[in-house]
Amino acid sequence: MYITISPQKLGGAFSQSAGDFVNYLEKENQGKDLSEKEFFFNQHEDGIKPFQVIKEIDGNTDKLKLKEPKYYSITINPSRYELQHIHSNPEKLKAFVREAMKEYASSFHREINGRPVSIDDIKYFAKIEQERSYKTNDIAIRENKPYAKQIAHLKNELRKVARGEISGNTQKIENEIQKLIREAPYKIRGQMVEPGMKKEGLQSHIHIIVSRKDASNSYSLSPGSKYKASEVKMHGKLVKRGFERDRFFQHSEMAFDKMFKYNRNYVESYSARKLLSKNPKQYFLSLRRLRLNEKKIAFKMIRQAGMQLPALHLPQSKVGFAYKQLKKIIEAGIKASSIGY
């Protein structure tokens, strides 16, 4: 599971309203009948229309400065293994989101009227999406890129031959293009994977738009706070502040496992991904200590990122380089959902 928290984009073409973002989240509903559309939901309601979301978020910005985010975007990307486990059931995904948002509320080191922040203080709206498209940073796109560049060059030659600008054998050029397509490492039904192409398999994920202000429009609740759990003296009183991202990510993961009796592999865990980012050598040492069955599954997930583990017989200097390269591949795979995240 890969969870991200991002502030509202401000400036440029982005307005102070949530309208642009909500309209973007409606992209999968375009061209569908009313009965087929996916609506927003929150902690207690389903079937919430886009205009209601915009009205609620835009109307909950009291005393926020012009350049302060009015809302945050949370994206929850279950792995393909997690989705397979729950059969990508939308109702189960909704139930999980509601549990995860309880963890979101509990991760604020704040008090409202002398009590901890609760889920009823959080104004949010969530939407399930079923599709994902390939982006330029995906492994498939990056590894196809050399082939795509050669194909683009050959197609340009074809156009020049057709216009009479250069001489050439069009059939030979066409054959070269087809040969490159066959050799490209990533294809879907014989077509080379390109940016914007829909990904195959289970791709359900959830977008959440959460107001910066609490439900009463009185208190600012920022998950982007630079402060971790701490206290500061303001007006002669100690005030709690901060948001614990690690807690939110880990407890959301734990909530999924508990709800659906999911047996999480080591490489799927947030703690493992964090270790990979901070100490890749220790990460791989931890992999080697896993029980045989768990290790087999872990290595399978890593291989799906597009690279094997570094060989043990490599010189120490080259092993270090291999660790760094593999770390980049795995992190990119996680973010792009290419190993299921």
Rank of each mutant, 00 (worst) to 15 (best):
K63I: 00
R245H: 08
S79C: 05
R273Y: 03
I339K: 00
A105W: 01
R159T: 12
E176H: 06
I119V: 15
N144H: 00
D120H: 07
K199Q: 07
L25R: 07
E82C: 05
H207P: 11
P146I: 09
V193P: 04
F249D: 04
G340W: 00
G196C: 01
R264P: 13
H44P: 02
S218D: 13
L326V: 01
I177G: 05
D20A: 14
L287D: 03
K135Q: 10
P78L: 14
G320P: 04
E111A: 08
S73D: 13
S79Y: 02
N279Y: 14
A184Y: 01
Q250E: 12
I181Y: 01
G236I: 12
P185H: 03
E45W: 03
Y24D: 05
F41M: 02
L290P: 08
F96W: 09
N89F: 05
Q30C: 05
S252W: 09
S88G: 14
V239R: 10
L202K: 14
S6I: 04
F39D: 06
T4V: 03
Q325P: 02
K261M: 14
P223D: 00
G242Y: 13
S133L: 12
M101N: 06
E45A: 05
R212C: 04
Q282G: 10
L93E: 10
E294Q: 14
Y2P: 04
A336L: 00
K123D: 06
E200M: 06
P78N: 13
I128A: 12
G47P: 03
L83D: 08
G320N: 12
L287E: 02
L309T: 02
S269G: 14
A332I: 03
T75Q: 11
G19P: 04
K145A: 04
N169G: 06
Q84A: 09
A100M: 01
Q308K: 10
G340L: 03
H85L: 11
K149E: 10
N42A: 03
I141E: 02
M192D: 08
Q8H: 01
A229C: 09
N113D: 10
P90I: 11
E28K: 13
I122E: 07
L154S: 09
